[in-house]
Simulated assay, not measured.
Amino acid sequence: MFRNILIPTDGSPLATVALDAGIAFAKEAGARITVLTVMEPFHLFSTDAEQLASTKEEYEAFSRQHAGEILADAAARSERAGVPCGTDQARSHEVYRAIIKKSEDIGADLIIMASHGRGGVGALIIGSVAAKVLTHSTIPVLIYRKK
């Protein structure tokens, strides 16, 4: 039924547990996975253009490196399980939109992702990427929640 699964991850412990669950699900289904990490762009207001450029470059280099490490770990986990895996990283102010766009670009038929389960004021202030993906996705979304 599911042949092409997108698994977005931020590298957090819960997202890594969800990644492992997604890999196991894909293996059982005979599906391939694509693991995506979305980095938020640099956010700093400064009147010193030189400082801003330098700080932005450092942030972008660090975030690319960090995303690369997350994706390399995901690819290794997938390879150990014998599940075909592609990886990608994106940069977006709206993480949920980047996830949905990637699912469309690769023709995914399922998104598996973690949810930290924030409720109440935390969810209102921070917003939930998982909730936004659920709301706006046109394909099924399987949410792995913290127990």
Score class of each variant (00 low, 15 high):
residue 28 E to L: 12
residue 102 K to P: 00
residue 69 E to H: 01
residue 75 A to N: 03
residue 137 S to P: 10
residue 126 I to T: 08
residue 16 T to I: 06
residue 133 V to F: 07
residue 83 V to N: 03
residue 28 E to R: 12
residue 51 Q to M: 14
residue 46 S to Q: 03
residue 1 M to N: 12
residue 20 D to G: 13
residue 64 R to D: 06
residue 36 L to M: 00
residue 109 D to A: 04
residue 124 L to H: 11
residue 76 A to Q: 11
residue 83 V to Q: 07
residue 131 A to Y: 01
residue 72 A to R: 12
residue 34 T to Q: 13
residue 38 V to M: 04
residue 99 I to A: 08
residue 110 L to C: 10
residue 118 R to Y: 10
residue 111 I to F: 00
residue 120 G to P: 14
residue 71 L to W: 02
residue 1 M to S: 15
residue 35 V to Y: 04
residue 55 T to A: 15
residue 98 A to D: 02
residue 12 S to M: 06
residue 16 T to S: 03
residue 34 T to H: 11
residue 129 V to K: 02
residue 131 A to S: 15
residue 126 I to P: 01
residue 103 S to M: 09
residue 97 R to M: 11
residue 33 I to A: 04
residue 38 V to C: 01
residue 121 V to H: 05
residue 22 G to L: 02
residue 54 S to H: 07
residue 115 S to P: 04
residue 76 A to P: 04
residue 57 E to F: 00
residue 12 S to L: 06
residue 136 H to A: 12
residue 140 P to A: 11
residue 96 Y to K: 05
residue 32 R to P: 00
residue 76 A to D: 12
residue 69 E to Q: 09
residue 114 A to I: 15
residue 42 F to T: 05
residue 10 D to W: 05
residue 75 A to I: 01
residue 6 L to E: 04
residue 50 E to K: 03
residue 74 A to V: 02
residue 108 A to E: 02
residue 32 R to I: 07
residue 128 S to E: 09
residue 92 S to A: 15
residue 123 A to F: 00
residue 63 S to M: 15
residue 69 E to N: 12
residue 17 V to Y: 07
residue 78 S to G: 10
residue 137 S to T: 10
residue 44 L to D: 08
residue 7 I to R: 07
residue 103 S to R: 09
residue 84 P to R: 13
residue 51 Q to R: 11
residue 8 P to N: 08
residue 4 N to V: 06
residue 135 T to G: 07
residue 112 I to K: 10
residue 57 E to N: 15
residue 39 M to R: 15
residue 104 E to I: 07
residue 109 D to E: 02
residue 44 L to E: 11
residue 64 R to P: 06
residue 108 A to D: 00
residue 112 I to G: 08
residue 8 P to W: 00
